[in-house]
Each structure stands twice: as C-alpha cells, then as structure tokens.
Design a protein around this nucleic acid. Structure first.
Lengths: 220, 220
DNA sequence: AGATGAGTTGATTGAACATTCAACCAAGCG
DNA sequence: CGCTTGGTTGAATGTTCAATCAACTCATCT
C-alpha cells in the first residue's frame, strides 16, 4: 500500500536473542517432520511450521532457502536416522533375521493402531503426493526406500541358508517394502487394520513356503 | 474496491448459450480426471480445470458446489467404469483367470512405460495425498479399491481348483492390489521400471508356488 | 406472448500462501 | 571501544487460490 512507509517499526520489545546456534534449525526440522507426517507436504503451510515450532519466518528463511529445502532436510533426517529411529527400536531383543522382518512390520501395525489407522509411511505418502518432484527430493525419497529394502535384504541374506538357492534376496527386500506400503495404504483408506493384517499374513505364507521349499531342495 | 460498482457490464458479447445440457458437466469431469492423474488433487487448481476444459467458473460452480465435489464425481466415474475402462481393455483375448491377473498388471506396466515412469495408479495417489479425507471421498476411494481387488479375487475363484483348498482368495485379491500399488510406487520414485518388474516377478513366483502346492495336495 | 428457470459469463472477493526485508540484537575479535 | 558476523523479528508483499454473484441467454412451457 502507498501508506506502508509510514507504518514504521515502533517499539521493538525483545528482539534478537540468538540463544543457542543450530537449535532453531533442529526445531524447525522436527516440527516439519511431524507436520509432513500428519498432514502431508502440500497441506502443511510454512505458517503451520512457524506457529508450532515457535520460530519466526525470518529465522526459518535464514536456515532454509525455501519450503522445499525444509523437506530436503526432513528426508535427510529420515535417511540418516533409519538405524537408530526405525530399525533399532523394532529389533530390540529380536535375533532371528526372519523374525526381524515381521517385527519391523509389527512396528508399522502399532503405528496404525495408535493413530486409528489414519497415518502411514511418511516416505510413501510423500512419494505419491509430490507428482513432479525436484530431482534432489526424488533422489532422497529413493534413498529412503533403498535404505529400507536393503535392511530387509540384509535379513534375507542372514537367513540365506533357509531360502532356496537361487532366491533373489534384493528383490525380496523390495517386495517386503512393496507389501508394507500397499498394506498401509489399504488399512489407511479403509480405516481398518484387517486389511493390513491379511496382507501381512499372505506375505508370511509366502516366506514360509519359500523356506519350506528350500528345505525340500536340500533333500533332493 | 470502492470503485467496483462503476465497472458495470459493458457489451455482453456472446453470452449464455446452454448448448447441450450435461455436456459441460462431463467435460469438467473428464478434464479433472486427467489433471488429478497428472498433477494430483491438491496441486490441481480450479483454474487449471477451467482453462483446460474451456468452462467458466460460474458454470463449474453451477454443477458442483465446490472442488471436492468434482473429486467425488471423478471417483464415481472410476468406480462405475472399472469394467469398461480398466478390466475389459486389458482382458481382451485373455481367458485363463490367472493370466488375467498378470494381464491387468501388464496394463499398469504399459502405463508406466509410456509415461516414463512418472504416473501411477490414480486412486492410490489420491489415497495417500489426501490425509484427512471427507468420509464421502474416503468411502469412494475404498469402493474403488474394493472393486479392483474383488475383480482379482474373482479370477482366483475361477481358478479355485488350481489353488490350495484353504486359500483365502479374497485376501489374495487384496494382496495383488497391494503389490501393484507398492510396485508402481517404487517404479515411479526410482523412475525405473525394473522395480515394478522385480516385484511382479516375485508375485508370480508366489502364485506359481501356490498352484504347485495345490497340485501336490491333490496327490496326498 | 410472456414467464420460467436451467445454464452461462467473467470480473470480483477475501483468505491463504510462500517469501522478503529493513531493522535489530548479542557475542567475539582486534 | 568499534566492527563484523550469525541470528532474530514481524510487518509487508505480491501472488494464487476457491468461491461468489449480478447480469445475462435461450429453450421450453403455459
């Protein structure tokens, strides 16, 4: 407006307290992680992040060139934290590699239960939500998928002696990711955990059959 | 603005030609279907729909109370058109029920190929994109999933004699949907059809194994 | 002929949006 | 002490968005 110049800064009550360095950056990323998970990337406004994290817009734009760069930060956090944040908590006290696979899936089941089947895999949601992703974003989503399915493939490798000789264990890791994502998608859409459970049951049947086949092979 | 009243209608060049009734409604829905598929629901603006369909905002809001009602119309179109639009084209000349399953999956593969692995299942994308869907929208997405997996379950039913006696064929239908959605999600994220193919190969292995098991059973 | 109402027009509205910026602050250093 | 540097503040900006509406047209019915 033409009168904008007259609305000069007035009191400046308690500005500028750079308390502790990259604390703000971390708070922004944690808040954004929460919000992207709850509402998705597109439905989360910068104002949402600002109000929940108690950070002011200038501070956010001091650390991140734009909203997408916040997303990049969140995806890096997921990628770098897969072991401590996802695998370790679900694999506590679980030794058998095949049990580990289903323990991880049980973790997703728990998340569905406590959120009344409303939330899902944050990476999967982002992957389908953003239709024309920036290459940086797309690569990070792919890296997250790779981290996940590689971990499962590692379980299959650790149980290689119980699987058929020619089994493509990398493909099996990708398959478990596929089933998890599809099962979560259906449970979420129907708001019914039964869809998740039945899908996992079929997967379990397949892996059981696979191991039974391997046993037969060893006799042949 | 205060001067708005003075900007009165001037010439009214060629207004009001209600050419052919619900033609406009159909054009809106078809355009919206395209756009939601290409860019998703949230990233498609009403203005996008208007400009591509050559319809004016007033006309759109004459037929639909709001943007979400356009989505409802599109989802109804998908639900009601699953046979003619999806199944029939993919099952032309395919008789064997198990072949039908993989013919349908091959259809999704073709779509991925011709779009350079950028597009995916329109329902799956919507399901993960809209985090807090209106019950009407959610029910319609669920109905679309049910239509899909029921069709596959029908294939398994038609091939029931080749499957193990106790096989849960409804659950198998849901499982095939799960694998399709997960496989499309990965192919799209990696921009690599290999992720789709490997997932379908594993699914084929499972179903083959299932049928082999059934054959063994009959000897027992 | 006159009235009716389904359908059309596009400028307009107000909210929400991502982003900017001039002013400001405090710690550390020379 | 003065100056730089990294951080903070929040009002302002310009755009985009879904939605509105008074004015208008024309086929159909009475």
């Amino acid at each position: 407006m033409w009168w904008a110049g007259s609305a000069a800064p007035m009191i400046a009550p308690d500005r500028g307290r750079p308390l502790n360095a990259a604390d703000t950056r971390q708070r922004i990323l944690m808040t954004a992680m929460e919000l992207f998970w709850e509402k998705g990337y597109l439905s989360t406004s910068v104002a949402d992040i600002l109000s929940r994290s108690q950070v002011h817009s200038g501070s956010l734009y001091h650390f991140f060139p734009g909203k997408q760069d916040v997303l990049v930060g969140v995806l890096e956090l997921y990628r770098d934290g897969i072991d401590e944040m996802l695998l370790a908590p679900n694999w506590e006290g679980v030794d058998d590699p095949i049990d580990k696979i289903f323990a991880l899936l049980a973790g997703y089941r728990t998340h569905l239960i406590v959120t009344d089947c409303t939330y899902g895999c944050p990476i999967g949601s982002l992957a389908l939500e953003i239709h024309e992703p920036d290459p940086v974003v797309r690569d990070l989503m792919a890296a997250n998928f790779t981290g996940w399915s590689t971990a499962i493939a590692g379980c299959f490798n650790a149980a290689a002696d119980r699987l058929p000789k020619g089994a493509d264990r990398k493909a099996l890791g990708e398959f478990v990711l596929t089933v998890m994502e599809g099962a979560v998608m259906q449970a979420r859409t129907y708001r019914d955990i039964g869809y998740f459970d039945r899908n996992i049951a079929v997967l379990r049947d397949y892996i059981t059959t696979l191991m039974a086949t391997a046993k037969d092979d060893s006799f042949a």
